[in-house]
Every structure is written in C-alpha cells, then in structure tokens.
C-alpha cells in the first residue's frame, strides 16, 4: 500500500475551513454542555489549532520525521490537562477529539465519491467501536475512583485515634494535614470520648501536623471550644517554634486556649488540672 498521507493532507488542507466549521457544529449539537462550559471562542480556537496540526501531521506521519505528530500529541495532551482541571470528564474530552472524524469523513467521502457505500459502512462501524472504546475507558476510570474513595474512607477510619492516657485525660495525636472533614471527624470522636470516659481534660497534640495555617488554627479553635462547651478543658501541645512564629505572623489569636510545646508538659499540666500526681 502506498503512503496516502500526502494525498489526504492536501484534500484536508483544501477544505480546512469547512472541517473546522463542521467540527464546531458537531460539538455544538452533540456536546452542548461542554461547549457552554468552555465557551464558543475557546471551542473555535481548539478546533482550528488541532485541525491545522492534524493536517500537517497526516502528511508526515509515515516518514521518519514524526515532529509534526509529536506536536499534535502535545497539543492534545495540553488540552486534556486543561479539561481535567476544569472538571470535564475524560469521556467528554475524548468525544471532543473524536468528533473531528465526523467533520473529516464526509469530506473524504466526497472526494472518493464512487466508493461511498464502503465509506458509509466504515463510518457506521467506526462510531459504534468508538463508543465501546470510550465505555471501557470510563468504566476503568470509575473503578479507579471507587478505589481511591475506598482508600480515603479507610484512611479516615484510622485518621483520628483517641487515647485515654490517664484517669480523666484523653489524648488526640494528630498526624498529617488537617482539613475540614477531618476536623469534623476529630471533633466527633473527641467529644464521644469525653462523653464516654467523662474525662476532664482533652489534649490535642499537633506535633505531627507539618503546616499550621490560619485555616488549621481555626479548626483547632473550634475543636477547643467544643470541648469547653462539654465541660472539659482542651490543651493543645506540640506547638514548635516555627508554628508559633507562623501563628503570630498570621495574626491568629489562640489566647483563649492553653498551649504547650511538648506533650510531656501538656500531660503534666493536665495532671495538675485534674489534681492527680505521678507516684
């Protein structure tokens, strides 16, 4: 079989505007939400750029210099990244690319008018196979996401241990990043522990939290006031020099909460507060 890239490329470049136009139209008809999401101007830009690159790439794809094709690949990769950042599903992005076929095939068919029936057949099968391909893709993705969610759940289960370290004293050692959902979970487990054990002091140890920003600080204040409302005192330990520096620079006011540098200090204070002595 002789290389047909040149021929196709010349046909396509003759009809370049027509391809861009009908591709755009296809997109507007078949994936309206996508077009609405990224805007008509952006769609126009994408169709034009990729059509141009494709026309160039088709010409050289069978020779040793793949540079044009590499450029096309790069463009599509960039587009995919952008789409995923905008929370557009990979299926939709793939469809966006696939619709160029609907723009190109009629033009090729027009050129080889005599074989139009075969072209029709190919087109027909093609659209079905495309859909199947997309389906496998989507299912794979869904199962991966399911796995990630499950792991997140598993992590959540072990993420907030509450330890009763002494009579009337519970300890919550925190490790890793503290976000809103974890704070919520932490508060719930802490309050249940206080309720169940009727502990008078709760120590939250943040030595394992790498960065304490204003958001984390706010979460900690919330947790402390929750413990206070129940009638327990809340100590925060593990405030290192770096953390205290950032907190003051951020203007976070922790003055209502008792804080200590080390857990040992905190424990000692807690023992004093509950009028207990180590023998």
């Amino acid at each position: 079989m002789t290389f047909i890239g040149n021929e196709i490329s010349s046909i396509l470049s003759k009809n370049r505007n027509k391809i861009c136009d009908s591709w755009k139209k296809q997109l507007i008809i078949q994936s309206r939400t996508l077009v609405e999401l990224i805007g008509l101007n952006q769609v126009e830009k994408i169709t034009q750029e990729i059509s141009d690159s494709l026309i160039k790439a088709v010409k050289t794809i069978n020779t040793h210099e793949h540079e044009d094709y590499k450029k096309l690949e790069k463009q599509v990769a960039e587009l995919s990244r952008e789409m995923s950042l905008r929370n557009i599903t990979p299926t939709e992005t793939a469809q966006l690319i696939f619709f160029i076929k609907d723009a190109i095939f009629p033009i090729l068919q027009e050129d080889y008018g005599q074989n139009s029936i075969i072209a029709d057949y190919i087109l027909f099968i093609n659209s079905i196979v495309d859909k199947l391909g997309l389906l496998t893709f989507q299912i794979y993705l869904e199962s991966r996401e399911e796995l990630i969610k499950e792991q997140q759940r598993a992590f959540m289960d072990v993420s907030v241990p509450v330890v009763k370290v002494w009579k009337d004293i519970v300890l919550i050692p925190l490790v890793g990043m503290l976000d809103s959902s974890r704070t919520q979970l932490m508060m719930e487990t802490m309050l249940s522990a206080i309720e169940d054990t009727q502990s008078k002091v709760a120590i939250i140890d943040i030595s394992g939290i790498p960065i304490v920003d204003s958001l984390v600080a706010r979460h900690l204040i919330t947790a402390a006031s929750a413990a206070k409302l129940m009638g327990a005192e809340c100590l925060i330990t593990g405030i290192r020099a770096k953390i205290s520096q950032t907190l003051v620079q951020l203007g976070v006011d922790l003055s209502g909460i008792v804080t200590k540098t080390t857990l040992a200090d905190g424990l000692q204070l807690a023992l004093q507060m509950t009028e207990q002595k180590l023998i």
Partner: peptide, 25 residues
C-alpha cells in the same frame, strides 16, 4: 452535661458561648 450532638450543632451555628462555665456532669 451538654451532649455531643448538642455541642456539634452549637459549634456549627457559630455559638461559642464564651464566658460560660461548663462541666461534664
């Protein structure tokens, strides 16, 4: 004797109830 659920709702409502003395039981 404030319950856990009560505390969580109050916190979510933004009521910190500072200057209020509280105890477990």
């Amino acid at each position: 004797g404030m319950k856990k659920e009560v505390v969580l709702t109050l916190i979510q409502l933004g009521l910190r109830m500072e200057n209020l003395n509280t105890a477990l039981n």
